[in-house]
């Protein structure tokens, strides 16, 4: 099956069971619909996203698996961070629903045509999506929570362990 796809696309073999195809954003729907209808890559097992803030892009990896579960195909594409929009894959891979919902919540990517893009794991989240790299987790935590003060007699663990080891050694030598 992969051979017939190889004639059409520039597919690169990464490992014995892993193949990779890099496409442009414009070809996205056409490619995916072709692959889903005319090959045995019938399962969408994952959509992975990475935030490349320096290049102002999101890199998305759609990972497809064959019916026999013996080959994986990664389809990589880039979308701009601002105006991050993509058409939904619901028509070809129904299992994309949850993954797209998750990506929408964590990265703010809009999947046009997916009707379930409301709260998922985070409820009433008002800030910028937390997996975007401009979101400052530490500042958010400091703003929203108080931390418990340490005990008065707390000590640096490493220093304390060293001190105890030295103490034990001293005692051992003294007993000799």
């Amino acid at each position: 099956m992969i051979e017939s796809l190889k004639q059409q696309y520039n597919i690169e073999q990464k490992e014995s069971r892993l193949f990779k195809l890099i496409i442009k954003k414009e070809e996205f729907l056409k490619t995916l619909s072709f692959i889903s209808s005319s090959s045995n890559f019938i399962t969408l097992s994952q959509i992975a996203c990475a935030d490349w803030i320096e290049d102002e892009i999101f890199k998305l990896n759609y990972i497809l698996t064959t019916k026999e579960r013996d080959k994986n195909l990664m389809i990589e594409l880039e979308i701009p961070r601002e105006e991050s929009k993509l058409p939904t894959l619901l028509n070809f891979f129904p299992q994309a629903e949850v993954m797209e919902r998750d990506l929408h919540e964590m990265y703010g990517i809009e999947f046009i045509g997916n009707p379930t893009l409301y709260d998922f794991a985070l409820e009433n989240w008002k800030e910028i999506p937390p997996m975007r790299r401009e979101f400052d987790t530490l500042a958010y935590v400091n703003e929203h929570f108080d931390f418990r003060k340490g005990r008065e007699d707390n000590r640096d663990v490493k220093v304390e362990i060293k001190r105890r080891r030295a103490e034990a050694k001293r005692l051992k030598n003294a007993n000799k």
């Binding site: 937390p130 987790t137 108080d146």
Partner: peptide, 12 residues
């Protein structure tokens, strides 16, 4: 402790 969606001190 630095997670954005878990609480830190339950007894609050």
């Amino acid at each position: 402790w630095d997670s954005y969606n878990t609480i830190k001190r339950l007894e609050d």
